[in-house]
């Protein structure tokens, strides 16, 4: 450590003025450009039901944008890759289904319940943040598997058991599509807001070197927890909306490991730690998947 400190020239050790100026220029430019981009995507998204007979492709495209962006808040910004990310999606789907089907809660109440369930689960899983690297990833995956088993073993009239839950109430798919668009745009907006404030730099510092970040005064625990809760809550809301959209929830689909791996791959493809990376990755991969699927039956 002392050797490293000795090798760093004093002029480079504290370039605060030179670094802060570009940061704020980036802030102003990015906000205007990015807001225009978001408005453009939003306009396209809003017009789709009017011009397209089916919305399923678009629904799932925006779902993956939201999930990849949510995962990026944790994996990209702090360097913690949660392979058990599917647990949040699953708990959201189950919370909405249980509230709507078994307790006859209206759609909005089911979504609020799912949001709360996602946040609560993130807080319950928070002690895993003491782990680092692959240990955190593996433990988070294990917790997702345990959570799935717990739900399966609950009585059928509580959570549907192994058979899952079929939601017998009808939900407007167009409304759910718009909700998914709103969640995905919200996730991107949150990532943008974080990245252009000093919190973004602090999170990057945590991702680059946790110990060094703590030494310079970054509240690593608090920021990590905030990202973890935010990330998990967005995933839970996605799970809730998807559950209501498809109306069929079972443990295998709700806690599918593919939800974690796809979100990680999509975010990584576009660029972990960037605001637009997960969006680009999700769009490219969803369209590629669509093309492969379409070509398979040509």
């Amino acid at each position: 450590m002392s050797m490293v400190m000795q090798s760093v020239p004093p002029a480079e050790a504290a370039p605060s003025v030179r670094q802060r100026a570009p940061l704020f220029r980036l802030h102003r430019a990015s906000v205007s450009i990015w807001c225009l981009t978001l408005v453009g995507i939003g306009l396209i998204a809003v017009s789709i039901p009017a011009v397209s007979a089916g919305v399923s492709f678009w629904f799932y495209l925006f779902q993956w944008i939201a999930l990849a962006s949510a995962l990026n808040l944790m994996a990209g910004m702090t360097g913690y890759v949660p392979f058990g990310f599917a647990a949040f999606f699953g708990i959201g789907a189950y919370a909405a289904a249980v509230l709507n089907q078994f307790h006859h809660a209206p759609t909005w109440a089911a979504l609020v319940g799912a949001t709360a369930a996602g946040a609560l689960l993130a807080v319950l899983f928070a002690p895993t943040l003491r782990l680092r690297g692959v240990f955190f990833s593996v433990v988070s995956l294990s917790l997702a598997i345990v959570l799935r088993s717990v739900i399966v073993l609950l009585p059928e009239d509580v959570a549907g058991g192994s058979s899952g839950i079929t939601i017998t109430g009808r939900h407007d798919p167009i409304l759910l599509y718009y909700l998914m668009v709103a969640v995905s745009m919200g996730a991107v907006a949150i990532a943008t807001a974080i990245s252009v404030t000093p919190h973004g730099l602090r999170l990057k510092a945590i991702g680059d070197d946790l110990d060094a970040a703590q030494i310079i005064g970054v509240n690593a625990k608090g920021l990590r927890l905030a990202m973890w809760v935010l990330s998990g809550t967005i995933a839970a809301v996605c799970g809730a909306i998807e559950g209501l959209y498809s109306s069929a929830i079972d443990p295998a689909a709700a806690f599918n490991i593919l939800i974690s791996t796809k979100a990680i791959i999509y975010a990584a493809l576009g660029g972990l730690g960037t605001v637009m990376g997960p969006v680009v990755g999700a769009v490219i991969m969803t369209i590629t998947d669509e093309l492969i699927w379409a070509l398979s039956h040509c």
């Binding site: 450009i33 490219i284 369209i287």
Partner: peptide, 14 residues
């Protein structure tokens, strides 16, 4: 950032 913003616009259009 600017290049990626432009890229995402094209992708969204596609």
């Amino acid at each position: 950032f600017l290049k990626m913003s432009r890229g995402i616009g094209f992708l969204a259009a596609g």
